[in-house]
Nucleic acid binder design. Sequence first.
DNA 1: ATAATAATGATAAGCATTATCATAACTTTA
DNA 2: TAAAGTTATGATAATGCTTATCATTATTAT
Lengths: 146, 146
Amino acid sequence: MSTAELKEAREIFIECLKSRGLRYTTQREAILETFLSSVKHLTVEDLYNIVRQRHVDIGYATVHRNMKFLVECSIADEIKIGNDKARFEKHFGQDHHDHLICLKCGVFIEVHDSTIEMLQNKLAADNEFIPQRHKLEIYGICRQCR
Amino acid sequence: MSTAELKEAREIFIECLKSRGLRYTTQREAILETFLSSVKHLTVEDLYNIVRQRHVDIGYATVHRNMKFLVECSIADEIKIGNDKARFEKHFGQDHHDHLICLKCGVFIEVHDSTIEMLQNKLAADNEFIPQRHKLEIYGICRQCR
DNA sequence: ATAATAATGATAAGCATTATCATAACTTTA
DNA sequence: TAAAGTTATGATAATGCTTATCATTATTAT
Ligand SMILES: [Mn+2]
Ligand SMILES: [Mn+2]
Ligand SMILES: [Zn+2]
Ligand SMILES: [Zn+2]
């Protein structure tokens, strides 16, 4: 994530907070920056451990709470697979994509197919259903784990 | 579900049990028949409450355990949405389908598009990924809840 | 400075799922 | 059939993730 992107995300975050009468704290800044500068698809626990390197006394609940809040602000997306811990990835500034998920190593491969997206909308329309979001996950074995 | 289908499912179940040295008990029969004759997408708790009408002393753990086992025997499929309770539907004798899920009333609308399925396989192939199963869920508002 | 408001961090609660285990039921062996 | 061996059941405990609670701290408004 570039400095400019980080700056823009921070502005969105601050704006989202302000609109609800909430404050931009040092914890929130640390969580936002950690999230934006880390690899994708991390859990709250992963992020908590990274944030603590810089912000020793931060609480797990604070990280959890604010990751949920980043989702509300459309800065993060939450990914939930079965009963596993939720994982997070950037939403803001990133194109929509789906995931190929390796059953052996757990890697997430990001993919996109606009024809699939279009056909999904058609399925919804055929059923007089108003789609808001969707989830497409393909589980299998990745190249490395073959 | 027709009588013939029920009979066939029972045979598959018994065969699956036998191959593992397990027994076809009255509880297992009650759970299988309840599952096959009920509407789709019920939770273990739902099924537990229905089975109890006929089999008063059955335990929740037994229903849970055996629904998992029906999945192993490819008689049932488990559907897991977010942190909700798992739901089950028939696998045996039913074509693969995806779901439109209403965010208001929770209804599951079953849909299928073979072009989407084909394009999913292409996505996997392009990434040298061997697909085993997938999950496509479209969340939105159904006709009734409009 | 004082009062009001929100955030934090520790911890408890909630909830679905799964494990444990004593007892019961069933099957095999003698 | 009786005894021994095996599996299933049902009650309940344990687990794991998520979320709620609340006393304390920090920030903002008056
Ligand atoms: Mn992703
Ligand atoms: Mn279905
Ligand atoms: Zn892999
Ligand atoms: Zn609806």
